[in-house]
Simulated assay, not measured.
Amino acid sequence: MIILAFFIAHWYLSLFAQTFFLHRYAAHKMFTMSPFMEKVFYTLTFIFQGSSFLSPYAYGVMHRLHHAHADTEQDPHSPSFTANLFDMMWKTKNYYNNILHREDDIEDKFKKNVPHWPFMEKLGDNWLIRIGWGVAYTLFYIQFANHWAWFLLLPIHWLMGPVHGVIINWYAHKYGYRNFDVNDTARNLLPVDFLMMGESYHNNHHKFGGRANFGIKWHEFDPTYPFIKMLNALKLIKLKPNNDLNYM
Rank of each mutant, 00 (worst) to 15 (best):
H101I: 00
A9E: 02
H77D: 13
S78L: 07
E38D: 13
F151L: 12
Y141G: 14
I167F: 09
E199C: 06
R211V: 13
P76L: 05
M160V: 13
A136Q: 08
K109D: 10
L22S: 11
W150A: 11
L234A: 15
M1P: 13
M30G: 04
R102L: 12
H206R: 10
Y42A: 00
H116R: 14
K111F: 11
A58I: 09
L231P: 03
L85Y: 01
H147E: 12
R178W: 01
W127G: 00
Y12L: 12
L85A: 09
F41M: 13
P118M: 02
R211W: 14
H69A: 13
L152W: 11
H66E: 11
G165M: 07
K93I: 02
I3V: 15
Q74W: 06
Y247T: 06
A186I: 03
I167C: 09
R187E: 05
Y201F: 15
H10V: 12
F16L: 15
L152G: 02
H67T: 01
L189I: 10
L54C: 04
M62K: 14
F214K: 06
M30Y: 04
N204T: 06
H63D: 09
H101Y: 15
F7A: 14
H67C: 03
H116A: 07
K39P: 05
K240G: 01
E121K: 05
H164M: 01
W150I: 10
D181S: 14
F144H: 15
W158D: 03
L139R: 08
G132N: 11
N213F: 04
F144L: 00
F227C: 02
S14P: 07
H219M: 14
S200E: 05
F221Y: 12
H23K: 06
T32E: 12
Y25C: 06
E121I: 10
I142N: 07
I142E: 05
A5F: 03
M1T: 15
D104S: 12
A5D: 02
R130V: 14
H67R: 11
G165L: 14
F144R: 01
F144N: 14
F194W: 15
D222C: 09
I2N: 06
G209W: 00
W150K: 03
D87L: 02
N232V: 07
F36H: 04
S80A: 14
F221C: 06
Q74F: 11
M89Y: 01
Y57E: 02
W133A: 03
F48K: 07
I216E: 09
Y59G: 01
L195W: 02
I237F: 01
N204D: 11
H28L: 07
H219S: 13
M230F: 13
M230C: 12
N242A: 13
